[in-house]
Nucleic acid binder design. Sequence first.
DNA 1: CTGTTAGCGCTTTCAT
DNA 2: ATGAAAGCGCTAACAG
Lengths: 337, 337
Amino acid sequence: MEKKLPTIKEIARRLNISASTVSRALHDHPSIGLRTKMAVKKLAAELNYEPNQTAIFFKQRKTFTIGLVLPNLREEFFSAAINGIEDVALDHNYIVLIGQSHDDLAREQKLVETMKNHRVDGILASISSSTTHIEHFEQMKNYDIPVVFFDRVPDAKDIHSVSCNLYDSSVEAVEWLIRNGHKRIGYLQGPPTLNMKHERLDGYMEAHKKHKLPVDESLIVSTNLSVEGTRSAVDALLQLKKRPTAILSFNDYVTLDAIQYARQKKLAINKDICFVSYANVPVTQYVEFPPLASVEQFPYDQGVSATELLFRLIDKKVAGQESPYENIVLKSELIIR
Amino acid sequence: MEKKLPTIKEIARRLNISASTVSRALHDHPSIGLRTKMAVKKLAAELNYEPNQTAIFFKQRKTFTIGLVLPNLREEFFSAAINGIEDVALDHNYIVLIGQSHDDLAREQKLVETMKNHRVDGILASISSSTTHIEHFEQMKNYDIPVVFFDRVPDAKDIHSVSCNLYDSSVEAVEWLIRNGHKRIGYLQGPPTLNMKHERLDGYMEAHKKHKLPVDESLIVSTNLSVEGTRSAVDALLQLKKRPTAILSFNDYVTLDAIQYARQKKLAINKDICFVSYANVPVTQYVEFPPLASVEQFPYDQGVSATELLFRLIDKKVAGQESPYENIVLKSELIIR
DNA sequence: CTGTTAGCGCTTTCAT
DNA sequence: ATGAAAGCGCTAACAG
């Protein structure tokens, strides 16, 4: 029992005018007589006429849709980023197609493919932790679909991106630990794929250098972000003859897992061992032992900035212009509790 | 520099055959000669031909897109629900358009409108806390867009829904408190709009009745879910001459705020006052004082179930059949720590 | 100021 | 086994 919705044709037929006149009337085209315009609008309203967007998408080669591919929505970082993205998108009368990669490359590829099929006007992406190459994103150039990476940005040339500069805050975070008397500071890094830009590590190194502290390679371990991965990494640190007294870790979620594990191992948090982290997600305010400091990465602002950049690219594309690759870097901020 | 993608026509032209033959060949239509079929497929592959989905959407009157409208993504409940939704959608080769109402009716309306314009094949919704009517959803019937509500389901006739039965668990939760010696149990409810189905309250009442405990109306307060709202509600409870020794509260987030506030007020959590809650979100495992018990509402399963129902409705619609209203109720489960 | 016409890319009768 | 033609709903160039 498919209801059939009124079309422009139907209105035209009833009014004994042409479809194009109706179309123009509805668009307030200047060259339409007031009388017919009124009549058209009146009838359109009566019939509850609504333009068939799929027809328009088809004709205009635009879908007013952007695709968003990210690792997951569970992390408050990403859900906050979406807020920025959605706000900007809605302002532009766009809507967001969403897909979670769950840190799985194959799924990420499928999502990009599906979004391409849906002819999204652009894609925003934060890559999965298992993303070793970005061909699937590069392919989008063949379809004139601009891609903007944010936060988890691949270390590649010829991409558009928005991210936070974590270097300065990393230096600051480690210096803060050093000033607080820590001499052996562990660094619990993320998976290698995500460390293509070594800002965290570089900052860690730089702080050591500035304070003439030697860097012990065995203090640097990594996790694939899973609970188990984090535990075994923390284990590696705890088994060292000379344990670290502080750990700088990839993000707050990893840190929460690490802290939980350290407690299980009977370590006194903030006495035996301190934690400093990244993301500064709000949930940490409710936990018993939050990281002592965390680097705020402004997810909302990253979302806004990435989406604005994407729209600039979309607009340029429509105008037929080439766009130079833009890599916007926002600053981060070390938040000390 | 709009690249132009190869079309069926282009292939037809190069092969000196007709577009319809190409179309059929690509669809493995039985009546196409093997020879031409091969030739078509070969050329299509060479040219990287990909069907223009917008044209197909337009023609088929289907977009392979479902709209998801929910209050926010911040709460782990909703992000978990999306996982179920996305998984089922992807299985059906669908993708999800997302929109957060941020508990604002006007925004919810705008989202529904936008999704309608995008001609989504169906809508999944969890209503905002300020949603006092659901006309905007009911409108969708005029467009043959089925709507399935989940979790936050309006109390209305003639809707499809998936939700958890909270009544039994509510009785159980309150009985558990009573058995643990509590005689004055506060109930911190959500905003009136969301309490259209009073399962939580009914369960609260029933447990009291079963144990012959009188119900003191002043123990029942409500929050609009904001931090301040929750604080003043808790305040009301704490100012009572006879304070409650336990509080059953709307969900874990509200509970976390309530606990934080109670601590500020120098109450000893789990001594002076205990909390029992709903949702059982994972973050509570990291917090110092989680609710003593929480009602698991199986967000992933709700998401799966709601999406499966939606697809059944979509399929029936395509088959031109009417569907009776389905209201699926899953069971919940009181999880005691 | 308005109508005619063509066409977006694809599917689908209806012929042949 | 293949082609011709129509049409989905809308827009826009071209003609008056």
